[in-house]
Design a protein around this nucleic acid. Structure first.
Lengths: 183, 183
DNA sequence: CGTTGCTATGCAACGAGTTGCATAGCAGGA
DNA sequence: TCCTGCTATGCAACTCGTTGCATAGCAACG
């Protein structure tokens, strides 16, 4: 029930097509709200029917036409209402934590396989952290000279960076624990 | 596709009824994998049909009978296979982050409302952290004298504690940022 | 010239998960 | 005695979200 709102925020930051939104969800917005292009097209169509957004056909010479969406007044009203509503508690789904507890019911070979998997998983989070830090230097070089939107985007990015650093520290703890079991 | 696995782990740690599982998901397991009683009953029934678990009718004198589930050999095999499969990247859904970016498109009154909401949200995370720390002292008083299962449960709990501490620090950052905007 | 890959949108089918409601017995308090 | 609340399970309807597939034009590479 909140993909609509994530799309509204993204379109307010910058109007765009379903395809462009899907790419943004793979990158910036997708850091804290994932969605496939299917879901995005589906929801966009419904939002257009409901008058939350308006679409404009844009020819691009060469490449296929795209439908560029912008937020309309009713959509903005919906967003304002939602912004002022209570934050729902997050629904946590952390598969790795389940696997770690499950490792108690596997043998040493299974735990060795999980250890290798945690190492691979750790490497992906290290890459993510690097991308975030690079992006921070690129997009927010001077923390004193930011407008409201940028300050808010920056504090969200700092949250992503803090999350990744926490995960890396924890994964080191996990690896130490796993390696200490079968010795 | 992974609720089954979380249920298998929970039933291996301790057999129990659908109702008991639902309560565990509200507490310990639910820290990293949420589920409603509906979903649990539904999946348990399918798992029983597929022979992954077996049920035993237990009368309890007074209170309604319950169906207590235990993991059968095929279920254990399914779990082992899953434990050794690659960890899927987490699907992040962080509503608050979307709202913070959305606050750029609301006025000072809206941002004040969001600030109050973040304070409330922060209080719930502070309570969660306290519960975790209390549970850690209760369940793992002597870190040197733990068996394999307990060590793994402990490292997962340490992850929960690290997560909550990170969130609290970040929320302080968010509050400072929000308060700095409209001055 | 064929293959691969990117932009751009969409259908159809399915599975996952939520919400509302229903049932039923017992315990405890006002 | 009635109401609330807890244990215990379940149906029905719905929404959310994923997966697989399809189309279509153009660009770049070998």
């Amino acid at each position: 029930m909140a993909l609509e709102h994530a799309i509204l925020v993204s379109l307010l930051e910058q109007p765009g097509s379903g395809y462009e939104l899907a790419r943004r969800f793979e990158r910036s917005i997708g850091r804290f709200w994932t969605a496939t292009h299917q879901q995005i097209y589906h929801v966009l169509k419904r939002m257009e029917t409901d008058g939350w957004v308006t679409a404009e056909q844009v020819g691009q010479g060469g490449r296929p036409d795209k439908r560029s969406y912008s937020v309309a007044a009713p959509g903005r009203a919906v967003l304002t209402t939602w912004l002022r509503a209570p934050v729902q508690p997050e629904a946590v789904r952390h598969e790795l934590a389940v696997k770690i507890r499950g490792a108690a019911f596997d043998d040493a070979a299974g735990r060795a396989a999980l250890t290798a998997e945690v190492e691979r998983y750790r490497a992906t989070h290290e890459e993510t952290l690097e991308r975030y830090v690079t992006g921070e230097h690129r997009d927010f070089p001077d923390a004193g000279a930011l407008d409201t939107g940028q300050r808010l985007q920056h504090v969200v990015l700092r949250g992503g960076i803090a999350y990744e650093r926490m995960v890396l520290d924890w994964l080191d703890d996990v690896l130490t624990t796993l390696r200490g079991l079968d010795r």
